[in-house]
């Protein structure tokens, strides 16, 4: 996994792009096309975008740049995955816990990820979240998600 070889990194991304564009073009087949005027309908655009992307993908396979991936470090993902996790958890739990609970929990994790100690993380999360809530919900009347008990 250390070396991708000459242009290997670009070939890999090109393959992913190829796969994506084929799927994209294929999805265009399922558009329920109604009446359209002229020769180009709503699905043709999708085909056009997809086919150009396929060509571009092939182009990148044939003429990759010398760019090398810096190999992904697992250590880094041990920090990134929790961020991914808390955002997912946030969007799932927001309807139940409401903004304050979900946001404070998320911010504590993010603050910890960026090297805060517990005291700092909690203090920072609580203050910023409260401030945000105060501003949106109370001053401007924009709901940030109230949760189950405040409906």
């Amino acid at each position: 996994m250390k070396s991708w070889g000459e242009g290997g990194a670009d070939r890999l991304s090109a393959l992913i792009i190829l796969g994506f564009s084929l799927a994209y073009g294929y999805a265009g087949k399922f558009i329920q096309v109604g009446f359209y005027n002229g020769d180009i309908g709503p699905h043709h655009w999708i085909y056009m975008v997809a086919s150009v992307m396929v060509l571009l993908g092939f182009g990148l396979v044939l003429r990759p740049t010398q760019h090398e991936f810096e190999t992904e470090v697992w250590e880094d993902w041990r920090k990134r995955l929790p961020l991914v996790g808390v955002i997912i958890i946030y969007s799932v739990f927001l309807p139940y816990t409401g903004f304050l609970g979900a946001m404070i929990a998320m911010m504590i994790v993010v603050a910890k990820l960026f090297g805060a100690n517990w005291k700092q993380a909690i203090l920072c999360s609580v203050i910023l979240s409260l401030l945000c809530l105060l501003l949106f919900d109370h001053l401007l009347g924009i709901s940030l998600g109230r949760g189950l008990w405040l409906k």
């Binding site: 961020l83 946001m103 998320m106 911010m107 993010v110 603050a111 990820l113 960026f114 090297g115 805060a116 700092q120 993380a121 920072c124 999360s125 910023l128 979240s129 945000c132």
Partner: peptide
Amino acid sequence: PRWILMPLITM
């Protein structure tokens, strides 16, 4: 400090 700025940006 980063531990304030980054959570803030995330929020």
